[in-house]
């Protein structure tokens, strides 16, 4: 049976309810490419809500992505805490020196209130502009760093590992502050018009901490935080591994999981089937040198392995496609989804 063409919103909602839509939804998670579209430097581009909203509109039209993704950059959240951000001409903005120099300073730390933090307002405004544009037909994906992953940028990774292992009371205190901030920030984006929140939590991946430690830390934080976010969440491991966490992830209340190209997509799909939707898992770094043929074949392969039965959104595996990825590769991905992603999926006989 051929489905009538759905709107991106219908397509995404159908797959999230573990049913097959008209075709595989595609989330092309492009951030810096908007600057290219507008002929601006990355720094200039992210300085204004209007730029990012316009960039997202143009990118969505060009590649028929099934969402708007007004994500600025992860360090914007430590900017809210008073840290500096370092811009690059051809890469994402990075966090500068940590705001917390001594672990004991955590006691004095206060969570910024979103309503009083100017730097965050440009994100909210871009969401509002896109909301008006989308007329409810296109999901708008907001972004919040998990309270458990944010400290890498607040303290530096080494100090954070020390904190997590040896200073549990201060660790707990920091989690409380970050949870208050994360909930406030996620809910402000939902109130501005975001459809769902991408909860970035790579420190919880088994690439970074063992499952037992995750159970005591990142998992508890995720459960409590996600429960207070007033909308659906997608937990994203930013290309860190998560297959062995599948049982626990389910209990965090999240709806979607962003998975890595370094784990097997068939196994991931199997582990999450009918429970959580899988988002992924194209390798964005490798994508930089894919030919059109490679892009087509890889997309086709992932779709064949993971799309049946719904519960699947095709995307890159990090939640941000590198600036260096060429437009023609992105166009090849778009075409391949149209060609091979129409349900029911035709599987090549083995």
């Amino acid at each position: 049976m051929k489905h009538a063409e759905m709107t991106p919103m219908e397509r995404v909602l159908t797959t999230l309810s573990h049913k097959e839509p008209d075709r595989v939804p595609l989330f092309l998670m492009l951030t810096m490419h908007g600057a290219k579209e507008l002929g601006l430097s990355i720094k200039e581009y992210f300085s204004k809500a209007e730029n990012v909203a316009e960039g997202q509109k143009r990118l969505q039209k060009k590649y028929t992505s099934d969402c708007y993704y007004p994500f600025f950059y992860a360090p914007i959240e430590v900017e809210a805490f008073g840290a500096e951000v370092i811009y690059s001409e051809d890469g994402p903005p990075n966090s500068g020196l940590p705001v917390i120099n001594n672990i004991s300073d955590i006691k004095k730390l206060e969570a910024p209130r979103v309503e009083n933090t100017k730097v965050l307002h440009k994100v909210l405004k871009s969401i509002e502009i896109l909301k008006a544009e989308s007329k409810g037909n296109l999901p708008i994906i907001g972004v919040a760093m998990s309270p458990f992953s944010l400290p890498v940028m607040q303290l530096g990774f080494e100090k954070y590992l020390e904190l997590m292992h040896y200073h549990l009371d201060l660790f707990e205190h920091l989690m409380k502050i970050n949870m208050a901030f994360c909930i406030d920030w996620a809910n402000a984006q939902l109130a501005a018009g975001a459809t769902a929140i991408c909860y970035f939590d790579p420190v919880s991946s088994t690439t970074i901490v063992p499952k037992e430690l995750y159970y005591k830390t990142g998992f508890q934080v995720a459960k409590q935080t996600i429960a207070k976010i007033n909308g659906p969440t997608a937990t994203h491991f930013a290309s860190g591994n998560c297959l062995t966490l599948s049982g626990l992830l389910l209990q965090t209340g999240t709806a979607v999981v962003g998975v890595s190209a370094q784990e097997n997509i068939s196994e991931l799909k199997q582990a999450f089937k009918n429970k959580l939707s899988v988002l992924g898992n194209l390798n964005g770094i490798e994508m930089r040198r894919w030919t059109k043929e490679e892009a087509t074949n890889i997309v086709k392969g992932v779709i064949e392995k993971a799309a049946s039965g719904g519960g699947f959104i095709l995307a890159d595996n990090h939640g941000e496609i590198p600036f260096q990825v060429k437009d023609e590769t992105l166009l090849a991905i778009k075409e391949a989804v149209k060609k091979y992603g129409t349900y029911p999926i035709q599987k090549v006989q083995a």
Binding site: L161, H165, T206, N241
Partner: peptide, 10 residues
């Protein structure tokens, strides 16, 4: 995939 980076680091 049997250990995580925090363990390698520590």
């Amino acid at each position: 995939g049997n250990l995580s980076l925090s363990q390698v680091y520590m």
